[in-house]
Design a binder for these strands. Sequence first.
RNA 1: GCCCAGGUGGUGGAAUUGGUAUACACGCCAGUCUUAGGAACUGGUAGAGCAAUCUGUGGAGGUUCGAGUCCUCUCCUGGGCACCA
Length: 807
Amino acid sequence: MEKYLPKEIENKWQQKWKNDPSIYAADDLSTNEKKYILDMFPYPSGDGLHIGHVESYTATDIISRYFRMKGFNVLHPQGWDAFGLPAENFAIKTGVHPSETTKKAIANFTKQINSLGFSYDWSREINTSDPGYYKWTQWIFLQLYKNGFAYKKKAKVNWCPSCKTVLANEQVIDGKCERCNSEVIQKDLEQWFFRITDFIENKGETIGLLNGLEKVDWPDSTKAAQRNWIGKSEGTQFGFRIKDSEEAIEVYTTRVDTAFGITYVVVAPEHPVISNLKSKISNFAEVEKYLIEAQNKTELERTELQKEKTGVRLEGVEVINPFTGEAVPLFVADYVLGGYGTGAVMAVPAHDERDYAFAKKYNLAIKEVVSGGDISKQAFTDDGVLINSSDYTGLDSAEARQKMADWLEKENVGKKKVNYRLRDWLVSRQRYWGAPIPIIYCEDCGAVPVPENDLPVVLPTDVDFKPTGESPLVNSKTFHEVNCPSCGKKAKREVDTMDTFVCSSWYYFRYADPKNADEFAASEKINKWLPVDLYVGGAEHTVLHLLYARFFTKALHHLGYLDFDEPFSKLRHQGIILAEDGNKMSKSKGNVVNPDTVVAEVGADVLRMYEMFMGPLEDMKPWSTQGIVGIVRFLEKIWKLQEKISDGQLPENGKNKALIHKTIKKVTDNIESFRYNTAISSLMILVNAFEKEKEIAAGDFEALVAMISPFAPHIAEELWEKLGHQTSVTKAEWPKADAELMKEEEVEMVVQVNGKVRERLMIAPDVTEDEAKETALESEKVKAFTQGKEIKKIIFVPGKLINIVVD
RNA sequence: GCCCAGGUGGUGGAAUUGGUAUACACGCCAGUCUUAGGAACUGGUAGAGCAAUCUGUGGAGGUUCGAGUCCUCUCCUGGGCACCA
């Protein structure tokens, strides 16, 4: 028999699949039940495919191939998240246009992906930088704009000085730019936003971003992270009247029960009340100095100095606590955030750590109103029973919160209020390589949407890439200077482009109808294929892509374009594959494993199967070059089993039959529950058993080949062909487990005495408790522990275990 | 500080409702064969002990005939959020 030569086999079959793309094509017309299995599409970087891509793409490929064999109509597409900064930065350095770089990278990615035998439906390939695609990104922008979900406003925004563009909140990690790690600063700029906060709670028929999490099958950690990011907080908002004035300062609190302990009020440096009260503030010079200092701090500086609180009293201004009628001093301090709640807080040093630290530093009164702590040492922040709180004394915190909020409402000075941490999504970018925002500014008409007939607004090529802080599109006269679509006068185009996350927020709709020139996708096709049945990708997109995509789905559902309001019914993340040394793979450490090298050495089937065998998909796990040998040996063993295929009739071998059917069941269950590592191990057990046989029935070997085909499609096709099949193993039926045939003639029964294993006996699987007891008590080993003792109890698990309880 | 997910041999990891702890694989040890190779095959491999046996799933308690699995407390690791009032 010839040797197992993965390279030859893999080339042969990849060529065949390429020549017959229909075998993996999704069928728009089929009435079979559909499965939409989706990978997070890659950014085609110059570095090529990463070993982590291989992990998640193999996982989805296995389940896609499995579902096809089960008779489902499977949609398993792939495409390119092709806009983005790396190509643009490369252009700045070298002058090579990003479209060139991207085109090259895509060609390389495609080659690499095909060398791994993934069963994508390439007829549905998409590319976000293709005008045929971003026309619809722009179209969706216009729908959002026309319905009030996209708007432009001046605001304090995150600015990355190195990337020279604004960033969304989600793209700032620990005060640093998600992409380049530079410290982010705050700037007042006029920018485009999407009203994502409108969809936090249910909106009409559309289930909200919070409630929607309850109906999807996503990892708990991901749901928790999204809830965390949205940051819902239920509290009370009420006003402090400024003494000798009609004006009031609104504060927000979750602890209105501590209101009798208020000893001062604090506003954020951005709070408008400061300039409004300028005439009253006797130390305004000092206050102004503080404001300037606060403004110059970066986000990082402002939060890094958490311990050391600073602030200035607004001398000459006092505010009235509505509960006590007491006048308390007013401070400005940058530990209060301008962008959250009302930008002002009531300070209760006895029951809040930050207020406590501030009060200690500036020698302010600390008044205890909830019993249970020792406020001479530290703030007591738990709930408790109220003291020193007039009529509310004696109530516990929860009850007091309710009654005090009711009182505020009755007095018309406050109400219950819900706040969220989530801000609207800032989507404009001052960069080149993205989808242009389809808006035209006219001196007379203002912001005018580009007419839908004029879409796409094509990205011009006559630009200078050097980032200046203004979009490079401003340099393109052909692009920038246009006529107003409304009045025809000279006007200017919006020069900012959209965040690449906008392009990736809807791409999974486009796969349903990728070539449609009249719609972003025909509604019958979208509603046929969507929602996505299984979505697999890295956990780093938890609050970025996954939140934005949900928002798009909800907005489009609300506008009547979709039948569903959650895009991804089931989500799983692949874990990070660490380098052999246990560190993260990185170019600078030189510990990166390149899939091309591994494929060249051991073949795609081995790489695919090894990555699935390493451990649970979602776990972080280190690469092991040594460990691959196990899979090489496994596939070689399967190859050699061909020699044992019997051409004649084999006598029924009961033991192997049971093992085959048990394996079918286990592999089937494991694939459906995404536990490929244990699926492979049970296949190994079956192969080890086959190896011990002199001959194997052809049908049994076929079942094995069918089962390995999702994991290692090339060797499976080759063996399938050698078994005499004319058609691809993809067209084969997935083997069925027969429960009758799984039954063993004899099973091992564990005999325990007082819960400890003392003996293992072979019995018929259906013996009764009495029979089992009798057999067990005859055993010498068991006797040694039961002799002369009274049997108090027998626990019997049929076919498995008997536990004899003695004194 | 808050919220998730985890801690099992030398290594990656197995273990339906609580029911044989360490499947499968790597590595290691011994052996067989050999054209000495990073091949193949056979056997062994949690720890202690000559053995019977005892001890073992981060730690301490508890529930149970029986706990890796359930409960309480605690330590550690990874991830997310964080001056959010």
